[in-house]
Structures are given as C-alpha cells and as structure tokens.
Simulated scan of single mutants.
Amino acid sequence: MKRLFLVLAAMILMAGSAQAEIVANWDMADEPGDQEYTEAAGAADYITAFDMVRGTGLSNSYTGNNSLNSNGWGGTDADDYIEFGFSVADGYEVTLSELWLGTRSSNTGPGTIGVYSSVDEFNSSVYTITQQGSSYSNNIIDLSSLGTIPGDFSIRLYEIGNLQADDDGETADTGTFRITDYYDSGSYIDVQFVGTVAASAGTSPVPVPNAVILLGWGLIGLAGIKRKIS
C-alpha cells in the first residue's frame, strides 16, 4: 500500500511538471494573404494568443495563398512590421525555446528581416532572416536567451537595411513579404512558439488536467484494492 501511494505521488508530480509544448500557434493554410489579420489556431493552458497583424505602415494590397502577405516595406518606417504573440495568465510564466515559421519575399521585397521581441521593447534582434530572391525560407529560431516571460509577449518582424531580396536596389513599396507555415519533408507545420508554461516562483499552481486525471485513476485503483482486502 505504501509503495502504491509513492508511485501515485510520483505520477502526479510528473504530470504537473513543465514540459516542452506548443505555447501558441497560427495555421496559415487556406489564408488568402490579403486578410486583415490571422487568428491564432490554438494555445496552451494559461495562454491567450494574439492575432497576427501588420503594423500601420504596411498594407495588404496583394494576395498570397497560405500566408499573411504584406507590402509597403520601402524605407525605414517604425510602423513597418508584422507582429504576433500571446499573454500569460497571472501566476504563470513561459520559457520559450523556439519559434517555427516560413517566410518569403518577392524579388523587390525586403532582403533581410530581423526578429525582435517585446522583452527589450523591440530594440535588438534575436535572429536575422535572409531572403534569397523569391525563395521560401524555413526558420527554427532559438528564443532560449529571452528567459522567463510573464504577462504579455510579442514578436515583431522588421526589415533590416533597405536592400531588396534580389540584391538589385532598394526595397520597393510594391515588394512583398509573407509569413507562411514551416515546411518539412512534405508536411506543413503551423507558425508556432515552443516552450514550457509553469507557475511563477512563489505561487501554488492549479493542478494541470493530466495530474487531475491521474489522481482520479489512482483513487479508483485504491478503492478497488480496499474492496479486495475487505
């Protein structure tokens, strides 16, 4: 009986511990490209995902199947960006490991895109995406340096410099840049943040659903053992 209690306790502890998961994701399949925004497809427990949007300096003049497309990147306007992110519930925090996404520019669209975060108020890029002409770019971006994140968090994609993707002149306002799903060996994977969600230090978390289920099964097992003994 004592051993059963110890096993049950270990199972609950394992179920309640933080494990890597999809924190928030955006499914770009069947999006026309010129939509006003893209809603999140899902989020982990205690996470509310934001819509994927364009900054006010960009336009949605062009379609682009299975993407959020944009134009108006010419120059260095502070409002030229694409933004998406999430909010963490009170008492919890997120530790991000990766961001998965696909990107594509037109030949006259931006050649270099910086990935910036709200952790430092979008002051320095944590990753640089180089667009080669109109080819797709698949990116798995390491975000582990951002540390633990409470409250609201966003990523912004800004152009770095003003050189178009085919290296032939400055980025044109009619040039486009789009976000798509990540492509891997014939499969498309949603744009997504990967990481762990856990209770903040000094707080007592509400049991996660798996832990509650395991506890229930454990209690049923104990009841069965008690009946056999009696």
Score class of each variant (00 low, 15 high):
109 G>I: 12
2 K>W: 09
224 G>M: 15
73 W>D: 09
158 Y>I: 08
100 W>N: 11
44 A>H: 08
20 A>N: 04
98 E>Y: 11
44 A>T: 11
193 F>D: 09
147 G>H: 02
184 D>M: 07
21 E>W: 03
70 S>E: 04
96 L>Y: 04
67 S>V: 10
166 D>V: 03
36 E>D: 15
121 E>P: 00
227 R>C: 14
122 F>S: 05
81 Y>M: 07
49 A>N: 05
180 T>I: 14
164 Q>T: 05
33 G>T: 08
210 N>S: 14
6 L>G: 10
106 S>I: 07
27 D>R: 03
18 A>I: 12
66 N>R: 01
104 R>A: 13
166 D>C: 03
156 R>Y: 11
222 L>E: 06
223 A>S: 13
30 D>M: 06
126 V>F: 05
55 G>Y: 05
45 D>W: 03
214 L>R: 08
51 D>K: 03
50 F>N: 03
37 Y>W: 12
167 D>R: 03
93 E>I: 05
139 N>Q: 14
13 L>F: 11
220 I>V: 15
20 A>R: 00
120 D>N: 10
141 I>L: 09
223 A>Y: 09
83 E>K: 09
11 M>P: 00
62 Y>R: 04
76 T>L: 10
217 W>Y: 15
69 N>M: 06
48 T>V: 11
2 K>H: 14
227 R>V: 15
63 T>Y: 01
68 L>S: 05
6 L>E: 15
44 A>V: 04
139 N>L: 01
3 R>W: 12
45 D>T: 12
183 Y>R: 05
125 S>I: 06
138 N>G: 13
153 F>T: 03
170 E>D: 14
95 T>S: 13
44 A>I: 06
90 D>F: 04
86 F>A: 06
44 A>D: 06
116 Y>A: 09
24 A>L: 02
117 S>D: 06
